[in-house]
Amino acid sequence: MIMDRENLIPIQDFCSIYKVPETFIASLYEYELIEITTTENTQCVSVTQIKNIEKLIRFHFEMDINLEGIHAISNLLDKVETLQDEIKKLHNKIDFYERE
């Protein structure tokens, strides 16, 4: 059941669809890897987080990476993405000066 008003999915439904234990989602929240919204006394995740949660599910259930590892990896991936953006900007900057 998707709650139309705010595009939220109750965690219970999410876990049933993805066949993951609710404790896993709770742990992701504890590690600040996802956000949980409570509405009408129901804990939900936003649909915008699905892609990220699917990735975290793959890390844990398919690659056998524990939560501490996922936490470390997520932080490093954020850094990788920031650096990749920075490289892109620097490439554009280099291109600018190489046209001198």
């Binding site: 793959r58 890390f59 398919e62 690659m63 056998d64 990476i65 990896i73 991936l77 990788v80 990749q84």
Partner: peptide, 15 residues
């Protein structure tokens, strides 16, 4: 497989 996947999975190697 798991060992190599942890090294090369696109989730862990963006772009």
């Amino acid at each position: 497989y798991r060992k190599l996947a942890r090294k090369y999975h696109p989730d862990l190697n963006p772009n």
